[in-house]
Computed example of a mutant assay.
Amino acid sequence: MTDAFFFGYGSLVNRATHDYGNAHQASARGWRRVWRHTALRPVAFLTAVPDPDTRIDGLIAGVPNGDWRALDAREHAYDRIDLTELPDHPLPFPPRVAIYSIPPGKHGTPTMAHPILLSYLDVVVQGYLREFGEAGVARFFDTTDGWSAPILDDRAAPHYPRHQPLDPAETTLVDDMLARHGAAPVALTS
């Protein structure tokens, strides 16, 4: 067992997108999610930004043998930062945890040229639903900024490489939460 953990707050909350074992629900104080894009990726993703008044849910999972290479490759647009405020976790010891964040000055607001993929958001919401229930999905939306960003509806032909199928109830939940936050996906044009 390793004592190195990562804190996932987006697609890494969905256990179907990775095979990192020793995963546990947790929350991190002092962070907020925001939709951003970076020149290193063609579409927008979630990043975590410091916010002393916010606490976000997520998963911590062990990094096998403390070898960060595979996870760093998956999160190549982000910097890995040591996380100091992890108040809620089930481990019997204080874990050494890192969070991935796109550094200030290296990201921008999503645009139609760099939209949010609905297939990515679906994966994230599915993960939060499975881990934290509908209340956790609501907290995810409430502790994430940038819902005015363009969201590309790619469900019929997902562009996100780790997309997962959603059942009808999950799809309805995503759509209802987007509507509640004033967000409307735009159709994928060919």
Rank of each mutant, 00 (worst) to 15 (best):
T2G: 13
F6Q: 00
G8I: 04
G8Q: 05
N14D: 14
R15Y: 08
A16H: 11
H18L: 06
D19Y: 04
Y20K: 01
Q25A: 15
W31G: 00
R32G: 01
W35L: 12
T38N: 08
A44Y: 11
F45K: 06
F45E: 00
V49N: 02
R55F: 00
R55H: 02
I60S: 03
I60N: 01
G62Q: 14
G62D: 14
W68F: 14
W68H: 05
W68P: 04
A73V: 06
A73E: 14
E75S: 09
Y78N: 04
D79L: 12
I81Y: 10
D82C: 03
L83S: 01
E85H: 15
P87V: 10
P87Y: 11
D88E: 14
P90C: 08
P94D: 15
A98P: 00
S101Y: 11
P103K: 14
P103R: 15
G105R: 09
H107S: 12
G108M: 09
T109E: 13
P110M: 11
P110K: 09
H114E: 00
H114L: 02
L118S: 05
Y120V: 02
Y120P: 04
D122T: 02
V124Q: 02
Q126N: 10
R130Q: 15
E131T: 04
E131H: 03
E134V: 14
G136C: 11
F141T: 00
G146R: 04
G146E: 06
W147L: 04
D153R: 09
D153V: 03
D153Y: 13
D154Y: 10
D154N: 05
A156D: 14
H159T: 05
Q164Y: 06
Q164M: 15
E170W: 12
L173Y: 11
R180A: 15
G182M: 09
A184P: 00
P185A: 03
T189N: 11
S190F: 13
